[in-house]
């Protein structure tokens, strides 16, 4: 009896580890194949390029992984990413000092997080529908602001310091990458060491029990939405600064990349379990695969198809691992 128990329980604890191992394997494989196919893959320029794409997914993913573990979703991140970038450009162009514009654009992200949280927690609207709604609001706003500016993107007439944040180098590495990775580290700490972790796992695992245990279920979910919004705002601002323009089109499919990275990393779509490191690995895989296909001049359209397949495949893989 005792031996039997040990065996059974050992299995489940190992599920995530197996998943992480598989992910590392896939990552190594992807990198090896990529390097073999195109030597350019490992070049400095390309690595910085990939890391920039991946860093944005990871940044939003750092908070979104907790949100998904708590059993909620955010589909609006892609459009919020676009909107905050456009707003950053628009504000600094129209006389607001760049540092202030920078902070304000991040706060716009927080504001959308707050709105999502209020809709889901306060008005009890299903997360999918609520964030689908705010997604369209953000998209509309991004296009309107760009249109008011007089074009498809906010590009011309930006102050000189607009690009400072995205272009400053520290040795061979862009400053913003260091800051983003520092933020990701902070969130890893939040994920691994703070009560937020406890709350998220408890709420996603059993909301009723969480409430009966006296946890502030609504407050935690609201806070997580605000964190996701804030980080997305930061990512949007960074991207705009790096590219030197605010474009309402940058965020298309971003929410999907984030969700795929998180699900690929072993987080259940029903909440209650998940892994930060898995999300990091998932983001790297998504980023590297996309990048290699780009380098090989495989059209970007295959990537969307591929990502759809990866998502479904990841869900099935998780189920397989769990049911064994």
């Amino acid at each position: 009896m005792q031996a039997d128990l040990t065996l059974k329980s050992g299995r489940r604890g190992a599920t995530l580890d197996i998943q992480l191992l598989i992910l590392v394997g896939i990552l190594v494989l992807v990198m090896a194949v990529s390097t073999a196919l195109t030597p350019r893959f490992l070049s400095y320029v390309n690595m910085i390029n990939v890391l920039m794409q991946v860093a944005m997914i990871m940044l939003t993913g750092s908070a979104a992984v907790l949100l998904m573990i708590a059993g909620a979703f955010d589909l609006s991140v892609g459009m919020v990413l676009a909107l905050t970038g456009v707003m950053y450009a628009f504000m600094s162009k129209n006389g607001i000092p760049t540092p202030l514009a920078l902070v304000l654009s991040i706060l716009i992200g927080s504001g959308f997080g707050l709105a999502n949280g209020a809709l889901v927690v306060g008005l009890k609207i299903t997360p999918v529908i609520a964030t689908l709604g705010t997604m369209y609001v953000a998209q509309g706003l991004a296009f309107i602001v760009a249109w008011i500016d007089g074009g498809a993107n906010v590009t011309t007439g930006l102050p000189r310091d607009f690009e400072v944040f995205g272009r400053t180098m520290v040795g061979p590495i862009p400053l913003f990458l260091l800051i983003v990775f520092a933020l990701i580290l902070i969130f890893y700490f939040l994920f691994a060491k703070t009560n937020l972790r406890k709350y998220a796992f408890a709420i996603g695992g059993n909301q009723t029990a969480a409430r009966l245990s006296g946890l502030k279920v609504g407050g935690v979910v609201l806070a997580l939405y605000v964190l996701v919004g804030t980080l997305t705002g930061f990512a949007g601002m960074t991207l705009a600064s790096r590219m030197g323009s605010g474009s309402p089109k940058v965020g298309t499919g971003f929410e999907f990349d984030v969700i795929v990275a998180i699900v690929l990393g072993g987080t259940s779509i029903y909440g209650g379990e998940g892994s930060f490191l898995g999300m990091i690995l998932g983001a790297l895989i998504i980023g590297f695969v996309g990048n290699t296909l780009n380098l090989l001049n495989v059209m970007f359209f295959y990537q969307t198809v591929l990502k759809g397949l990866i998502l479904v495949g990841a869900v099935l893989l998780m189920r397989q691992l769990r049911s064994r």
């Binding site: 604890g13 406890k198 796992f201 408890a202 695992g205 059993n206 009723t208 029990a209 969480a210 009966l212 245990s213 946890l215 209650g272 379990e273």
Partner: peptide
């Protein structure tokens, strides 16, 4: 209503 069944004993007790 009482337990977080997917979590370990260790994680349940302090909640």
């Amino acid at each position: 209503e009482g337990l977080f069944t997917r979590l370990a004993i260790r994680e349940n007790i302090p909640l």
